[in-house]
């Protein structure tokens, strides 16, 4: 539960940071500044999505491995109809 609470807190803060970065991007004075901000936002979101995606992949793999190790072995010689 503690890990989940920490994860929820971290995700909530990161979501708020994303919103704030977007707000800041709109405050750019020149097109170059705005374009740089957009590039930064896109790169940051992509990096966060990739990191979360990898963490999810690892968690799924670990859960599948645990399920496989705990499941009973198949009975040899039974055809199952």
């Amino acid at each position: 539960m503690n890990e989940l609470v920490a994860a929820a807190l971290a995700q909530g803060i990161q979501a708020a940071i994303a919103g704030y970065r977007l707000y800041q991007a709109g405050q750019g004075k020149t097109p170059e500044q705005i374009e740089a901000s957009i590039t930064s936002i896109v790169e940051a979101s992509k990096a966060r999505a990739v990191a979360a995606d990898q963490a999810l992949d690892q968690a799924i793999a670990a859960a599948e491995a645990a399920a496989a190790s705990s499941s009973p072995p198949p009975v040899s010689g039974s055809s199952g109809g």
């Binding site: 994860a7 995700q11 999810l56 968690a59």
Partner: peptide, 11 residues
């Protein structure tokens, strides 16, 4: 990313 992070933690 938010949903994936939470799902990973829950799993």
């Amino acid at each position: 990313a938010t949903a994936a992070g939470m799902a990973a933690a829950a799993i």
